[in-house]
Each structure stands twice: as structure tokens, then as C-alpha cells.
Deep mutational scan, measured.
Amino acid sequence: CFKERTRSLLREWYLQDPYPNPSKKRELAQATGLTPTQVGNWFKNRRQRDR
């Protein structure tokens, strides 16, 4: 489970760009304390949910 602060940050970035490039994923990973893989998976799952 991600912290609420982490989730809200991911949601904000998702609204700006649902397909972040690898450098954006690394930047988000540093900002949230997650790994780039976790960030990528979150975006993938979120895109799937929005279908």
C-alpha cells in the first residue's frame, strides 16, 4: 500500500501525462521513494483501470 501523499503525487502526474518516459519515472521514483518499476506498474494499472 502506498502512502496517501505518494498516491496523490502519482495521480497529479498521471493527469498531466498518463505515459511517462523512463526519465520521468526515475524522477517520480525519487520524489516518492518507490522504485521506477513500481512507478511504471502504478501507471500501467491506472491506465487499465481508466479504460
Rank of each mutant, 00 (worst) to 15 (best):
C1D: 15
C1W: 10
F2R: 09
F2L: 13
F2P: 10
K3Q: 10
K3S: 12
K3T: 12
E4C: 04
E4T: 07
R5C: 08
R5I: 07
R5D: 11
T6H: 15
T6A: 09
T6I: 15
T6V: 14
T6M: 12
T6E: 09
T6L: 11
T6D: 06
R7P: 04
R7G: 10
S8T: 13
S8R: 14
S8W: 10
L9Q: 09
L9S: 03
L10Y: 05
L10N: 04
L10Q: 00
L10M: 08
L10K: 01
R11I: 14
R11C: 07
R11F: 13
E12M: 09
E12V: 05
E12R: 05
W13R: 06
W13K: 07
W13V: 13
W13E: 13
W13P: 03
Y14G: 02
Y14V: 01
Y14K: 02
Y14A: 01
L15K: 09
L15T: 11
L15W: 06
Q16N: 12
Q16K: 10
Q16D: 05
D17Y: 00
D17H: 00
D17N: 05
P18K: 12
P18F: 04
Y19I: 06
Y19K: 12
P20C: 06
P20R: 02
P20L: 08
P20M: 04
P20S: 00
P20K: 00
P20W: 00
N21W: 05
N21E: 14
N21R: 08
N21T: 15
N21M: 09
P22V: 14
P22L: 15
P22D: 11
S23G: 13
S23K: 06
S23R: 06
S23F: 08
S23T: 14
K24G: 07
K24F: 04
K24W: 01
K24S: 11
K24H: 10
K25E: 14
K25Q: 12
K25R: 11
R26W: 09
R26A: 15
R26K: 14
R26C: 13
R26D: 04
R26T: 12
R26F: 10
R26E: 14
E27W: 04
L28V: 11
L28N: 00
A29Q: 01
A29V: 02
A29H: 03
Q30N: 15
Q30H: 11
Q30K: 06
Q30E: 13
Q30D: 14
Q30S: 13
A31G: 04
A31N: 06
A31M: 12
A31Y: 08
T32H: 14
T32L: 07
T32K: 00
G33A: 04
G33H: 06
G33M: 03
L34S: 05
L34V: 01
L34D: 03
L34I: 07
L34R: 02
T35V: 02
T35R: 04
T35A: 01
T35G: 02
P36D: 05
P36Q: 10
P36F: 15
P36L: 12
P36C: 10
T37Y: 09
T37L: 10
T37I: 11
Q38L: 05
Q38R: 03
Q38F: 04
V39Y: 01
V39D: 01
V39A: 02
V39G: 03
G40V: 05
G40F: 02
G40E: 12
G40P: 01
G40W: 02
G40H: 12
G40S: 14
G40T: 11
N41D: 06
N41A: 06
W42L: 00
W42I: 01
F43S: 02
F43E: 01
K44W: 05
K44V: 06
K44T: 08
N45R: 13
N45E: 11
N45T: 10
N45P: 00
N45F: 07
N45D: 11
R46S: 08
R46K: 15
R46I: 03
R47Y: 00
R47G: 01
R47F: 06
R47M: 00
R47L: 04
Q48E: 09
Q48R: 15
Q48D: 08
R49A: 10
R49C: 06
R49G: 08
R49P: 02
R49T: 11
R49D: 13
D50E: 15
D50L: 05
D50R: 00
D50I: 03
R51G: 08
R51K: 10
